[in-house]
């Protein structure tokens, strides 16, 4: 019978539809290692479990609990797995990604165990009384910390916000046998992947992001955003105006309603910087803005701003970047 460290932190690791570990894996285990002993829980289709467990150990899990599920889309069965792992490990905190799937798993699990939820954390620490989470509120205008009145907190962590990484561990795997729960669930008939450009960093986890706004003028001209993104090896985002105008898909929307990003570099092209857009990007480390309107609010928060024509400036930036690379 394996025993678990008293300072165990249970980390629910999400699996992609293709059976790959989610990008949040390393940062969640890194966050957990900073406050205790990371124990990973994985729920996936049987054929992927072995590889996923090995990856979790490599990313810092001291032990890995795994269970087979029929689908990684439905969140009630995933919460069943987390529940069983929690009862076995009795951890001091439970960490999950603040992604669509994992936040639902967190919510279902917290309700079942009447545990306190801390959502969209940017970091986790310890104080004398236990694990606390830090948050950024109203799009980065306020910083808060939260803690439970008692018991282990269930914390969802904003993807891309944790830089710490844990040391690789030897794999210590235990299989859980989780019986099908009795939760009411929906039926999933068909899942189709949205064509993603695998060569380009994913928006949420990219360390650099180039976003385009209404100033790009058309879907064809939005190509300029992709070109600069590729020159910088950056992910691609957009303002709501650009999404509403149909220049790019909704998943790329950065802002209050959409994705919140905190990259090392955020480049805003033809984006005026409405308050709702700033709410999704103003915690970026460095902000660069190019816009023809010198009164655009984006310049109030830009570390480097250029007032001018994106269609003239950006191609020159790309050539200068290429020249630098060629040196």
């Amino acid at each position: 019978m394996t025993t678990f460290a008293p300072d165990s932190i249970l980390v629910f690791l999400e699996t992609t539809l293709g059976g790959e570990p989610a990008k949040s894996t390393a940062e969640l285990l890194g966050a957990a290692a900073g406050i205790g002993t990371p124990v990973a829980v994985i729920a996936a289709e049987a054929e992927h479990l072995e590889a996923l467990a090995a990856h979790a150990a490599q990313a810092g899990a001291h032990s890995v609990l795994s269970a087979q599920v029929d689908s990684v889309v439905l969140t009630a069965p995933l919460a069943d797995v987390l529940q069983q792992a929690y009862e076995l490990v009795q951890p001091q905190a439970v960490l999950l990604a603040h992604s669509l799937t994992s936040r639902e798993v967190a919510a279902r699990f917290a309700v079942r165990h009447k545990l306190a939820l801390s959502v969209d954390a940017l970091g986790v620490q310890r104080d004398e009384q236990g694990v606390i989470a830090s948050h950024s509120i109203y799009g980065g205008a306020f910083a808060t910390t939260s803690a439970p009145t008692f018991g282990a907190p269930v914390i969802t962590v904003r993807v891309g916000s944790i830089e710490e990484r844990a040391q690789a561990q030897e794999l210590a795997l235990r299989a859980l046998d989780v019986a099908a729960g009795d939760s009411a669930e929906i039926t999933v008939q068909d899942v189709s992947s949205v064509q993603a450009d695998s060569a380009r960093p994913e928006l949420r986890t990219a360390t650099k992001v180039v976003s385009g706004g209404r100033g790009l003028g058309s879907a064809e001209q939005f190509e300029l955003v992709y070109q600069l993104a590729d020159a910088l090896e950056a992910g691609v985002g957009a303002s709501r105006a650009a999404v509403d105008a149909g220049f790019i898909e909704h998943a790329a929307q950065v802002g209050q309603t959409g994705v919140a990003v905190s990259p090392q570099l955020y480049v805003a092209l033809g984006i005026s910087g409405a308050i709702q857009h700033k709410a999704g990007m103003q915690t970026a480390k460095t902000i660069v803005a190019i816009n023809k309107d010198s009164d655009a609010p984006i310049f109030e928060i830009a570390d480097f701003g250029i007032v001018g024509d994106v269609f003239k400036i950006v191609p020159r930036v790309i050539s200068a970047l290429e020249a630098r690379k060629a040196q």
Binding site: A143, P148, F304, G308
Partner: peptide, 30 residues
């Protein structure tokens, strides 16, 4: 268990850095 807020702090507003009007050299400066 309830989740409670322990601390709250207003973040200092971001300040604008270098803003220049494109004179043909801005791309290089960036």
């Amino acid at each position: 268990a309830r989740s409670i807020m322990l601390t709250v702090n207003q973040r200092p507003a971001r300040e604008a850095g270098t803003i220049m009007t494109d004179d043909g050299q801005a791309a290089t400066a960036l």
